[in-house]
Design a protein around this nucleic acid. Structure first.
Length: 669
DNA sequence: TTATCCAAGATTTTT
DNA sequence: TCTTGGATAA
């Protein structure tokens, strides 16, 4: 099986004596290299329990697990870690919580909880904080966490305008700790801090993970890189696989520079390039190479293919966005019938989610089945958040975010004023809202009825948590959802009976999902484990099952990374859309170019690009220019009838050409 | 405490 | 244009 690898892939798999960076171009078989390498390691004396492979998404981890499963026996696989960075972080935190001063029942705060906490802190805190800046403070705090900067350092080193955020950061950390909660960034940051401070703990983990593989390495941030360095130590027993041309998450803190940094930190680093592409035709790769050549590169790379040259790429021009959607839909349908393909062979890719609506409508008009990935997160639904908050509260009653979310849902006549006073009291005493409910001192700030209501709620939570702990956890959960009359509450708060039914369906789906997670793997999981596990999962896992069936794929370019389709439509190729307007303003064109590159390299056989000359934006019809990226593609590979001379240079060339043509005609006669 | 209206803002979103 | 959230009135 190893013999089927090409020479570069083989070298990547068998190189064990030095740290290794694999620069894997799009479609060059990087997942294959990682999975084969895990098998190779096991067969050459490293037990699976000492190997860890890290990915960014649960989906990638799942895929990798299943592929390794085909290469190794169950016995050989035992103890292998294939997980996301965040899951590994959670595992470390759970095992080492004591060293960090945390309790075992850790809550995970999502974006929403984070915002709620921040706003709460701003309201009760220093004058220098501005509630309207909440989002930007959060962004800054996240930045610091990703750059491995502690509050102390942020305060010391922060420039004047960063000071309020730095102060808030310190306060935020303090509160999170008292809630026994962590956010997504903490799942990486806290293990790193722990390893820095406790050499013996680090040793333990280094001994456990003796070989580390990292997928999509270009997407790591500084803290994640620090974690990799700590775990692998000076020996650098690792293989990281990445592609700087597919770095599209810099806006989320990813540092593609980590690729180059590796060479400086590990002088013995070996670099192997995978340049043979097994996905696309030669022509598609030529176009992609040409486009990405406009970006600066630390490592030069040139993809090639043995799959034949293929058809020219088409560029479709449309008058406006509705026409674009309709033409793409009918073009797709014609193509399907002419070539006898399946709907699932097609993908429509766009820059931003709102573009999907038009395509949905057009596909429906043509009775074409479709499937949208991404968009609304499962955890974006209020009913899911409510139930999750209840579950979190059962696991960890000190989780204030969860407490606030559900204390009055359904209505328990505990209004904002009561909560405000309770919050102020809890804040003074440095305790959670839940604990505050039981304190005698509360009588000074709150009336008797309010206190009674709060206590009643808190006691009820304690009681349910107790029962869930002792008895059949899920029976208790089913029971409390009925008990609180959640279904009725949904009915009262929905526009229609239909909507209420749908929402209740979602809740049931969540509970079923929880049950499934509790039972997966050999050992039964505790509610704590299930709840934190589910906080790290999202839409994708759910969509996984729904995606069955022969349907056209609709998704953003970000969501398309890692996927491939025989026929791809890359739509909305216009200035201000791709590249996105804000990217133009902030001058982050290179990342937009990579985004276009990712889109192009998804196509196996045929790629159609499309743009509009006019588009309605925020209700107003605007003129659109074709994307600069279209002009960067080699003209001879495109079928673009409407191509107009777009930049002055080309206009000049064009003019010269026709001038020459006329002259040669004249000369002939 | 809840319903309703109006203004503002509108990328991408692995966990 | 459409959604969301804040302010206001009942």
């Amino acid at each position: 099986m190893v013999s089927q690898l090409n020479p570069q892939q083989l070298a990547a798999v068998t190189t064990l004596d030095c740290p290794l960076l694999v620069l894997a171009g799009a479609g060059s078989g990087k997942t294959r290299v990682i999975t084969e390498k895990i098998a190779y390691l096991v067969k050459h004396g490293t037990p699976a329990k000492h190997i860890a492979a890290l990915t960014f998404t649960n989906k990638a981890a799942r895929e990798m697990k299943s592929r390794v499963g085909k290469l190794l026996s169950d016995k050989d696989l035992r103890g292998l870690t294939v997980s996301t960075f965040h899951s590994l972080g959670l595992e470390i935190l759970r095992e080492e919580h004591a060293a960090l001063g945390l309790k075992k029942n850790i809550s995970i705060f999502d974006e929403h909880d984070r915002l709620a906490l921040t706003k709460e802190l701003i309201k009760h805190g220093s004058e220098s904080w501005d509630i309207d800046e909440a989002e930007s403070y959060i962004w800054r705090i996240g930045r610091w966490k990703n750059l491995f900067v502690t509050p102390e350092r942020a305060i010391l080193e922060g420039q004047g305008d960063a000071q309020p955020a730095a102060q808030l950061y310190a306060e935020y950390v303090r509160h999170m700790k008292s809630y026994n909660a962590v956010d997504f960034d903490d799942l990486i940051l806290l293990p790193v801090l722990l390893f820095h401070e406790h050499a013996e703990v680090l040793d333990k983990w280094r001994n456990r993970i003796r070989y580390l593989l990292v997928d999509e390495y270009q997407d790591t941030n500084l803290t994640q890189y620090e974690l990799v360095k700590l775990l692998t130590g000076k020996l650098g027993r690792f293989t990281v696989v990445g592609d700087d041309d597919q770095s599209i998450y810099a806006w989320r803190g990813a540092q593609p520079e980590n690729l180059a940094q590796l060479q400086r930190d590990f002088p013995r680093l070996k670099v192997i390039k995978l340049e043979q592409n097994y996905r696309s035709t030669g022509r598609i790769l030529k176009v992609a190479n040409k486009l990405i050549a406009n970006n600066p590169h630390v490592f030069e790379k040139r993809l090639w293919s043995a799959l034949g040259y293929g058809d020219p790429l088409r560029v479709l021009t449309h008058k406006e966005e509705v026409a674009e959607a309709r033409q793409v839909a009918s073009d797709l349908l014609h193509h399907k019938f002419r070539h006898g393909t399946r709907f699932q062979d097609y993908a429509i890719l766009y820059r931003s989610n709102h573009q999907s609506r038009l395509f949905e409508r057009a596909l429906r008009e043509h009775a074409i089945p479709y499937f949208i990935s991404g968009g609304m997160s499962f955890f974006g639904y209020a009913e899911i958040k409510d139930i999750m908050a209840y579950l979190r509260l059962l696991v960890n009653p000190d989780d204030d975010a969860a407490f606030l979310r559900v204390v009055n849902v359904p209505r328990r006549e505990i209004g904002p004023t009561t909560l405000e006073k309770l919050g102020a009291y809890a804040n003074r005493r440095h305790i959670s809202l839940f604990s505050a409910c039981f304190e005698l001192g509360l009588q000074q700030s709150l009336g008797e009825t309010a206190i009674q209501r709060l206590r009643h709620f808190a006691e009820w939570i304690t009681d349910v948590a107790d029962r869930a702990q002792r008895g059949d956890t899920f029976a208790v959960i089913d029971d409390f959802i009925v008990k609180i009359g959640y279904e009725n509450w949904l009915r009262e708060n929905s526009n229609s009976e239909d909507a209420a039914r749908r929402k209740m369906g979602q809740v049931r789906e969540l509970i079923d999902w929880l049950k499934r997670i509790a039972k997966e793997d050999e050992k039964e999981k505790s509610l704590t484990e299930v709840v934190s596990r589910i906080m790290l999962l999202d839409v994708l896992e759910r969509n996984q099952e729904e995606n069955a069936g022969d349907r056209v794929n609709l998704m953003t370019l970000h969501a398309a990374k890692g996927l491939e389709f025989p026929y791809v439509y890359l739509v909305g190729m216009e200035e201000n859309l791709l590249p996105h307007q804000t990217s133009i303003e902030e001058n982050t064109i290179e990342e937009e170019r990579r985004l276009a590159y990712v889109g192009i390299t998804r196509a196996q056989k045929h790629l159609t690009l499309s743009y509009c000359t006019h588009r309605k934006r925020h209700g107003e019809i605007m003129d659109c220019e074709p994307s600069r990226f279209l002009n960067e593609l080699p003209e001879e590979e495109l079928e673009w009838p409407e191509r107009r001379a777009l930049d002055p240079e080309q206009k000049k060339e064009r003019a010269m050409d026709s001038f020459a043509a006329v002259r040669s005609l004249l000369n002939r006669s």
